[in-house]
Design a protein around this nucleic acid. Sequence first.
DNA 1: TTGAAAAGTGTGTACGTACACAAAATTAAA
DNA 2: TTTAATTTTGTGTACGTACACACTTTTCAA
Lengths: 352, 352
Amino acid sequence: MAKQASIKEIAQMAGVSPGTVDRIIHNRGKVSEKRRIAVEKALEEAGYKTNIHTSAVSYRKTITIAVSCPMAIEGGYWSSVEKGFQDALDEFSDIDIRWVALPYDQFDVDSCNSAYSKVLEVENLDAVIIGATFEEPTQELCTKLDSMGIPYVFVDSSIKGTAPWAVFVSDQHICGQVVGRLLDAEESGLAILATRRRGSKRATNSIERERGLLDFLKDHGITTEPKRCQFSSTDITLAEREIGDFFRENPEIRWVTVLNSRGYIVADTLKKLGRSDVRLVCFDFTADNRRCLEEGSIYSLICQRPAAQGYNAIHYLVEHFFYKVGRKEKTTTLPIDVVFKENLPCYRESNR
Amino acid sequence: MAKQASIKEIAQMAGVSPGTVDRIIHNRGKVSEKRRIAVEKALEEAGYKTNIHTSAVSYRKTITIAVSCPMAIEGGYWSSVEKGFQDALDEFSDIDIRWVALPYDQFDVDSCNSAYSKVLEVENLDAVIIGATFEEPTQELCTKLDSMGIPYVFVDSSIKGTAPWAVFVSDQHICGQVVGRLLDAEESGLAILATRRRGSKRATNSIERERGLLDFLKDHGITTEPKRCQFSSTDITLAEREIGDFFRENPEIRWVTVLNSRGYIVADTLKKLGRSDVRLVCFDFTADNRRCLEEGSIYSLICQRPAAQGYNAIHYLVEHFFYKVGRKEKTTTLPIDVVFKENLPCYRESNR
DNA sequence: TTGAAAAGTGTGTACGTACACAAAATTAAA
DNA sequence: TTTAATTTTGTGTACGTACACACTTTTCAA
């Protein structure tokens, strides 16, 4: 551990004053070519790295971050993302971060549009964190943010036709392939269940997962098209009837996946039907899904790292506003964890 | 985000000087009961939290940490632990940490004893990080450290009869159960392979994993005792002969696990034997194992989070020496990740 | 050649904590 | 009661960076 050189020492090395070194580091301009070269050489030689602690002490600015994500439900996916936000905010509690939360209902485009318009009204806005569900509204928002020069980062899913500064997601195509691996299905008897969505198109994540699963099946010589069924995400009674009807009509089904986080609805229905012979692979480490995994009605959960997404988003922005000058684009693809009943106890909601 | 109160503000609230507040926070003594109560009340009310940045600026001490772990092999388990150390040291590069590495050969007790005795000779030793392999030498070391009042933390495995300040491990019993889940073996045809160890007893981690697997089998109605085979960990030619002989003598074997990180040796042998019908579940995200997973000769890897262990160990110590006064014992059981060929690309060596 | 204006450079203070030291208050001893 | 010893409390400076401001040098038009 070599001792870190200070700005003062760099200044001495380059034969200038600390102020000049500071101007070069933050390129505040007004420095002659001659000294710039000398200082940059010294900086290089000493391997100078700004002392984050001291830097934080002197830095007085308030960073305003607006965040627009689907509303969190206790124990649900977005509450884990929020847990990640909170962890990061706690860690950076010495930095003055103004946090403007503008959640929306992920099943209601209007609510999303309204949240997005509030984002644009936030005063002194420095950056935006977006957990996108709807494509067009998000594209519009991003275009406006681009023209205002305000950086934005995506968590959970990325929207095409936008220019985010950073993206924190999981590879959904891989998720789909892992479904295939875990189901270990035979030629026929596979079904893909999904929740119905009013108005809007299917979520991009779920489309990409399905593509991954189908690719896996093709690679493993399964040519029979999986059976499909849609069920309600809001009306549980209706959902149970729809799912029940589907399984009665297709008694050969033995391998099932639900490509979003509502797998527990299917699990509970299958349990009521006494169908313990069905292997069910679902998504996300939510409270309901964990319960079903515990009970044995879900075989396995494929989990993203929502807390890591939230944590990293803030970490990135703080780092950007704090230490870096220029834009440093970054896409972080987080691991996909496979959780069985057995290793469930060692995962926590805040898994990062 | 409520503004953090500073020591100065706390002092004002309690009607004392900042120095008094400081003495109370660090219990440097010499404070009257009357003011202690007043200040503690103010501290409580304001929810005071020391500003880590400023704290780091004023704190000038050098922390000396000795670390004794098995020597890292490029791409191996302990190199990931070291990656975690390095990440943490980089993150805390503003803090003056003196880092004394004293690695030993994990297959040689003498080398371990020698490393441990060097630990005790380190000047101004503040804390020790131990990656233990041998029980008795470690117990002896810990007893001495206890009497010297020097804190130590364990990574990877904990040793009984010691009093570590913190422990960063995975639950090996769960690991074993997950092996059972992934193998999905039938009544007979299961084998447990292990590397031979000269002189010393089997590693505690591997014993605990076996126990977990056997418990899983019992719970799932498999009563046939698994077949066993030991092979050399140093002489690959010998190992391949031993493994080959075992499979020729036991042609019914279809499900195999290797309870330490040397699974790739078995995988490569099986590949040469053309036995693609054997499902092999191995441990640890090492370069060799990743290659076999990629090639398909390993079905699945059960991975601990060595980088997280290393990172957390240093994080804990820095936190302790930096912010906390008293001892705060902590056992962190890290998640166990299941890696298939499909989700391999989204895990990195530095997975935390 | 002169003298603004502009460009370049140095100085000094603030940030909040840690800690040394000086000052004040209290206690104990004579 | 007085004085010394002791305990308690306040003050001031350092840490390394950020940034405002003052000062010096250069540039360039008149």
